[in-house]
Write a protein that binds this DNA or RNA. Structure first.
Lengths: 205, 205
DNA sequence: CCGTTAAAAGTGGTCTGACCACTTAACTAT
DNA sequence: ATAGTTAAGTGGTCAGACCACTTTTAACGG
C-alpha cells in the first residue's frame, strides 16, 4: 500500500492550477480558465474548484471579478506564496529561524537605543526582577518593550511571529545578558550592543 | 449609502468565525462548530461556509478530520495569520518595510563577509559593470549573491519577498555604494560595513 | 455602412439537496 | 458486562439551479 494520504480534491486542484500557470507561463494580470471550464477539464465539481480558488484568493495569488473571470493577482506576485509556505510548511531549518530571530533582536536593540529613556529602562528592569515570569515570558516581555521602541510595527510582527513559531525549541539568553543590555543602554554606547550579542552567542558553542 | 464594497459571503464567514474564536476563547486543538451548524447559524449555504474553511485550512489556521470535525490547528498558532495579513493586507507603512529591508541587507552583507572569496567578488563586480541591467535588476542580482553566501534560506526568502513587494517604491543605493562594498570585502574589515550603510543612509536625508 | 440598442452568452456568487466515507455514540443481543 | 451492530453526526464531493454582472453578438433603424 503506497497509500498516499488520500489528498482532497481541492488540494489536487490547487496543484493543477499551479501547473497550469507554470506551463502556460501565465503572468500577473493574465486570465485563468473559468470555474466551469476547470471543473470540466479536471473532472471535479465546480464547488471543489471554488474551494481551491477561494483559498488562493485569500492568500492573494488570484483575484476574481464577477462577470469577467479569475485573474492572477497583479499586486502580489505569484511567488508571494513561497514565503507564506516557508512559514507554514516549515521547510527552513531551526537554525535558520533562530539565527534570523537573534539578528532581529540585535538590530532592534540597536534601533531602540537612541530612544531609551529612564522610564523604559525601569520597565525592563522590572521584567528581569519579576520572579513570576518564566524565562520564555521574560524574554518576550523584555524584547517586546524594545521592539516597541523601534517604532516599526512590521519589524515587531516578523519577530513576534518567529518567536511564536520557534517557541518549542528556541534558546534564550543568559540571565546576566538582559541586565548587561540595560547597563549598555545607560552608558549610551551603542557599539557595545554588538559585542554583547557576540559574546552571548559564543557561549552557545 | 454606506455600501460597504459588497463583501462576499465567504469573507463574512471568515470574520464571523474569527469572532467566534475570539469570543469563546478557543485555543489550538479546540473544536469548531460543524459546517452545517455554522451554515445555519450564519444564514449561509454550506458551500460558502466550506469556501471560508478551506481557505483557513490552506493558511494553516484550522485542520479538519473527516467524521470528526474542524479544529483549531495545534501546530500553527492562530496568530500566524497576523503576519500573513501583514503581508497581504498591507497595513504597514512603506517606510517600515524599506527600513526592515535595508536592515536585512546590511546584516546579510556582514554575515556573508567571512565567506566571500575572490570568485564571488568577481561575480559581484560583473553585475556592477553589466550595462544591460537596470538599477533594479542590478540591486537584486547583487544582493542575491550576498544572501546566497549567508547560507540562510529563510533570511533570503524574507528579503526577496520584501524586495518584490516594495518594488514600486523602493530606493536603491548609489552606484558607488556597490563598488565600495566590494572594496570593504577585499580589505576584510567587517566593521566598515556598518559605516558604509550608515553613510549611504545619511545621504537620503 | 454605421452606430445604437437589445438580446444572448459567459462568468463569478450562492444556495439547496443529495450521496459517500468515516468516526463516534447509542443500542442491542448474547 | 461485553461484543457487535446500528444510528447519528461530520467532512468530502457533486449536480443543478438561480442571481448579478460583464462582454459579446445580433438586430434594428438611420
Amino acid at each position: 500500500m503506497s497509500m498516499s494520504p488520500k489528498q482532497k480534491v481541492y488540494q489536487g486542484i490547487l496543484e493543477e492550477v499551479r501547473n497550469l500557470i507554470e506551463t502556460n507561463d501565465l503572468k500577473p494580470g493574465d486570465k485563468l480558465p473559468s470555474e466551469r471550464e476547470l471543473s470540466e477539464k479536471l473532472n471535479a465539481g465546480r464547488s471543489s474548484v471554488r474551494e481551491a480558488l477561494r483559498a488562493m484568493e485569500l492568500i492573494g495569488v488570484i483575484e476574481t471579478r464577477r462577470g469577467e473571470g479569475t485573474f492572477l493577482s497583479k499586486y502580489r506576485p505569484y511567488q508571494t506564496v513561497e514565503l507564506l509556505s516557508t512559514f507554514i510548511f516549515k521547510e527552513t531549518t531551526k537554525e535558520e529561524l533562530l539565527s534570523v530571530k537573534t539578528l532581529l533582536e540585535k538590530e532592534a536593540a540597536k534601533l531602540a537605543s537612541t530612544k531609551m529613556d529612564e522610564s523604559n529602562l525601569g520597565l525592563l528592569l522590572k521584567k528581569i526582577d519579576d520572579p513570576s515570569l518564566t524565562m520564555e515570558e521574560l524574554h518576550f516581555a523584555f524584547f517586546s518593550i524594545i521592539f516597541e521602541k523601534t517604532e516599526n510595527q512590521f519589524l515587531m510582527r516578523i519577530w513576534a511571529l518567529i518567536d511564536e513559531y520557534t517557541k518549542s525549541f528556541t534558546r534564550y539568553y543568559s540571565k546576566p545578558f538582559y541586565s548587561k543590555l540595560i547597563t549598555v543602554y545607560q552608558s549610551n554606547d551603542e557599539q557595545q550592543i554588538d559585542s554583547l550579542f557576540k559574546e552571548e552567542n559564543d557561549h552557545n558553542y
